[in-house]
Amino acid sequence: MSLTRLDKLILVIVITIGLLSFAVVKQVSSHDSANEVVVKINSKKVASLAINYDKVYVFQNNGLKCWVEIKNKKIRIKKTKCPNKLCYKQGFISAPGDSIVCAPMRLIVTIPIKQKKVVDFVTR
């Protein structure tokens, strides 16, 4: 149970390396955020919106209408005329790969992942 002074030194060094690596990874991974939002209706891409400008866009389909808001690099459905309002209730999305789906309108708002989303590798 007894840790010597050198043990504690190694522990401190390892914890420091851990924290440093955490900071570095955080720094590096924050750079590759997406810069556009893709809107699809009936599985067809109808618009690609710049994420850097705060703006509200309107889309309609199937006689329904919704307002897509971009604010501080986050996206949400600000207002919708669809019956169950699930898309509105989802709130803001911001991470690549996230998406908001409105089934009645057959609308998908998604933040694309830059690389193709394939499995890199499976061990075993």
Binding site: S2, L3, R5, V14
Partner: peptide, 16 residues
């Protein structure tokens, strides 16, 4: 360093 290091330190470095 085994005189000044217990298994905890060795194992920690090994695991890292």
């Amino acid at each position: 360093l085994h005189k000044r290091l217990s298994y905890a330190g060795i194992s920690l470095a090994g695991a890292l």
